[in-house]
């Protein structure tokens, strides 16, 4: 007798847990031959709300971790993902990629995470400055993470695309609510599992599946979300997002649709966009005649 396969339930990821959507709804994901692949959670605005609460709660300790430690953890994500390489390839194939492209996608994803892992303890050295003000002050500007970031995963490159938006956000100390692509939810959920097992604290990354049409508005209008990023959103969606985001002056970045496999789709600016610059003035005691001209 042939053995009956045990199927995986794809769930959403909030605060380090894998609940089902509170709405109980699902949509069924079809393979290219029309067969059902999986029942995917059709998350609701309440799930989005819960995810934001989890992300906010995680923000303090995540942003205060040493940059080096964040680098170690992000690198760990790459290690864990590499270890699940074949699972990701299989899922990408289920969702319609051919074997060669699926493998390329996974490899590029691992390398991208490594790229940003390296940035964690370096971007500060590039974007911050010591400012030679005229008065007797030591004046310096440093980058600090913006806060909770809503990310709408691109509809291209099912794994690499969302990773390319997600990782620079968390590498910079932000916490994230990620809306998976409606077309490609499986690798988003499996990525959540990788993140879950990579020492990333619960709540730093939250993943919702469902439709961007339903989930983007509650995020974009949420007053406790500080920034939104996406790539290649339709003109209507993008403009709706901008309008809603203005309520609390969110930083909004809808990057152009791009070929995520190119090196040009990664870079420091992806981190920088989600940073605030803080300048500190500190007095320098100025007494006596001693100089350094010794």
């Amino acid at each position: 007798m042939t053995r009956l396969q045990v199927l995986k339930t794809y769930k959403i990821f909030i605060g380090g847990q894998f609940p089902r959507t509170e709405s109980g709804r699902y949509y069924s994901l079809k393979g290219k031959d029309g067969f059902d692949i999986a029942n995917v959670c059709l998350s609701s605005r309440k799930d989005a709300r819960n995810a934001v609460v989890a992300a906010r709660k995680a923000f303090g300790s995540w942003s205060e971790r040493s940059a080096f430690n964040r680098g170690q953890i992000v690198y760990r994500i790459a290690e864990m993902l590499e270890g699940r390489r074949s699972q990701f390839i299989e899922e990408l194939q289920l969702m319609g990629l051919n074997a060669a492209n699926a493998a390329k996608e996974v490899d590029a994803t691992v390398d991208r995470i490594v790229f940003y892992a390296g940035w964690c303890d370096k971007y500060q050295q590039i974007v911050s400055s010591v400012n030679p003000v005229a008065s007797s002050h030591f004046n310096f500007s440093v980058a600090e993470p913006t806060g909770v970031v809503g990310i709408v995963a691109p509809e291209e490159s099912p794994l690499l695309g969302l990773v390319s938006l997600l990782i620079p956000a968390i590498a910079g100390g932000n916490t994230v609510v990620l809306l998976a692509s409606e077309k490609y939810p499986l690798s988003a959920v499996t990525l959540a599992e990788v993140i879950h097992s990579s020492d990333v604290p619960g709540g730093v990354v939250n993943v919702l599946t469902g439709t961007a049409g339903e989930l983007m508005p509650p995020l974009a209008s949420h007053l406790d979300v500080n920034a939104m990023t996406s790539a290649g959103l339709s003109k209507d969606m993008a403009s709706a997002m901008h309008v809603q985001a203005a309520d609390n002056v969110k930083r909004v970045f809808n990057y152009p649709a791009m070929d995520w496999s190119k090196a040009s789709s990664q870079g420091l600016s992806m981190i920088e966009d989600l940073q605030e610059i803080k300048t500190t003035w500190h007095p320098i005691e100025n007494i006596g005649g001693a100089t350094s001209s010794y």
Binding site: F68, G71, F115, A117, G118, W119, D121, K122, I126, L268
Partner: peptide, 15 residues
């Protein structure tokens, strides 16, 4: 940590 830190620089020298 030194190795870890400098590893990340290898592909970011242009920055």
């Amino acid at each position: 940590n030194h190795f870890f830190y400098y590893a990340g620089w290898a592909d970011k020298l242009e920055y």
